[in-house]
Amino acid sequence: MVEISVKKIDNNFIIRWQLSKVEIPASEILNVHLDDTYGGDKKAAIRIGLPYGTTDRVVIETKKQTYILFTSNPSAIMKKLSA
């Protein structure tokens, strides 16, 4: 399985998974939290990663959009996003 990559470059977070790349300005992020629902509460959210039973969900709420990251390593992603 290909894991989601999160890096901070300047004031942007770069999220990569397979051939996808999403840039989120740090100043746009309102909230980052874990979600225990299978597909996430937000219907219009952008979903990144493979949703299956053993993955955790990291939710990034921004001023314009909500992102749900399906990952097997939520603590590493939460740590990078809170830096």
Score class of each variant (00 low, 15 high):
residue 1 M to A: 12
residue 1 M to C: 10
residue 2 V to R: 12
residue 2 V to H: 13
residue 2 V to G: 08
residue 3 E to D: 12
residue 3 E to N: 07
residue 4 I to A: 00
residue 4 I to E: 01
residue 4 I to C: 02
residue 6 V to Y: 00
residue 7 K to G: 06
residue 8 K to G: 08
residue 9 I to R: 15
residue 10 D to V: 13
residue 10 D to W: 12
residue 12 N to W: 02
residue 13 F to C: 07
residue 13 F to T: 01
residue 13 F to N: 01
residue 13 F to M: 03
residue 17 W to L: 02
residue 18 Q to W: 09
residue 19 L to Y: 10
residue 20 S to T: 04
residue 20 S to V: 05
residue 20 S to M: 11
residue 21 K to V: 12
residue 22 V to S: 00
residue 22 V to H: 07
residue 23 E to T: 14
residue 24 I to H: 03
residue 24 I to E: 06
residue 25 P to S: 04
residue 26 A to E: 13
residue 26 A to W: 05
residue 28 E to D: 12
residue 29 I to S: 01
residue 29 I to M: 07
residue 29 I to Q: 05
residue 30 L to A: 13
residue 31 N to R: 15
residue 32 V to C: 03
residue 32 V to A: 04
residue 34 L to Y: 02
residue 35 D to C: 11
residue 36 D to P: 05
residue 38 Y to F: 15
residue 38 Y to K: 14
residue 38 Y to M: 14
residue 39 G to C: 08
residue 40 G to M: 02
residue 40 G to S: 04
residue 41 D to Y: 08
residue 41 D to C: 05
residue 42 K to V: 10
residue 42 K to H: 07
residue 43 K to N: 12
residue 43 K to M: 11
residue 44 A to M: 12
residue 44 A to R: 13
residue 45 A to P: 03
residue 45 A to W: 03
residue 45 A to R: 11
residue 46 I to F: 02
residue 47 R to V: 00
residue 48 I to A: 00
residue 48 I to S: 01
residue 49 G to E: 05
residue 50 L to C: 13
residue 51 P to H: 10
residue 52 Y to S: 12
residue 53 G to D: 15
residue 54 T to E: 14
residue 54 T to G: 09
residue 55 T to I: 11
residue 56 D to H: 15
residue 56 D to S: 14
residue 57 R to I: 12
residue 57 R to T: 09
residue 58 V to E: 01
residue 59 V to P: 04
residue 59 V to N: 02
residue 61 E to C: 09
residue 61 E to S: 06
residue 61 E to A: 07
residue 61 E to N: 13
residue 63 K to G: 07
residue 63 K to Q: 08
residue 64 K to W: 03
residue 65 Q to E: 14
residue 65 Q to G: 02
residue 66 T to K: 04
residue 66 T to F: 04
residue 66 T to C: 08
residue 67 Y to A: 00
residue 69 L to N: 01
residue 70 F to A: 03
residue 72 S to I: 11
residue 73 N to R: 10
residue 76 A to E: 12
residue 76 A to F: 06
residue 77 I to A: 04
residue 78 M to S: 06
residue 78 M to L: 15
residue 78 M to N: 05
residue 78 M to Y: 10
residue 79 K to Y: 07
residue 80 K to G: 04
residue 81 L to D: 07
residue 81 L to W: 01
residue 81 L to C: 01
residue 83 A to S: 14
residue 83 A to H: 09
residue 83 A to D: 15
